[in-house]
Amino acid sequence: MDAIILQTFNGLSLGSILLMVSLGLAFAFGLMGVINMAHGEFIMIGAYTAYVFQEAFAHSLGGVEAGVWFVLAIPAAFLVAALLGALMEVTMIRFLYGRPLDTLLATWGAGLVLQQAARSIFGAPNVNVSSPIWLQGGFDFGAQLLLPYKRIFIIVLVAVIIGAVYFYLYRSANGRRLRAVMQNREMASCLGVRSRWVDASTFALGTGLAGVAGVALTQLGSIGPSLGTFYIVDAFMVVVLGGVGRLPGTILAALLIGISNTLLELGTSATVGKVLVLLAIIAFLQWKPSGLAALQTR
């Protein structure tokens, strides 16, 4: 029984991590048709923002263990990544709308530059971001069952982000404009929506979410210049499996991949588990080429 609960929890946790890294991509790719290969690098920027906050402010804000710096790093990483994303949108992406494959090339180049920049600024070796005391350890439910706080934290964080994104898209004036532009750009422009502004802000929102994911991932993985490359392919799988442009599909896809990956891995090995999951994704896309969202709309 314990083993089943633990494994379900592990699956949920992996799903939440996948969702975290792919949510921002779902914005850029799903809503705007931009294949942002530099998405992983924005995750990396978020992680380094957390590192900078730890180095710069941990002492003045009650020490590393108290974790005030960590809480502050989350909005800060959002801002830093969003600003850099906006910069990229203004200087590069906006010339490429309607040419999704060209965005792939240009953002790939931008990704190389960002990686090298991280290497030049922070050095090539990995850096460490410590955990606040309240993220160490976990809920102990007896012999075999211990649920780490960090994983629970990430699940909660993802839930909060999804709530915020939902609110932004469907309950705010900005979100309404965004949806209007995505549905019919000309009409929206005619009615006075500044579509340029909407483009820039949507892209920045996507990269900002990547930044937040970066802060959360510092608690589980390594922080180095090529951090983003570990997540980018998985993120694309999630978005495509979910169905491009469908937020509920993305959520479902992330959880499905997460749970099936952990279950298959338990039965076999990490390598075989991953291969089986990929096979399943391919088979599913054969069957429903437009992803999980197709199941919902029909």
């Binding site: 993985g221 090995s269 990490a270």
Partner: peptide, 16 residues
């Protein structure tokens, strides 16, 4: 147990 190079997810392996 072997993890794919660059793998960052260890929850299942730790369970094992």
């Amino acid at each position: 147990e072997y993890v794919p190079l660059g793998g960052t997810e260890f929850s299942t392996i730790i369970s094992k």
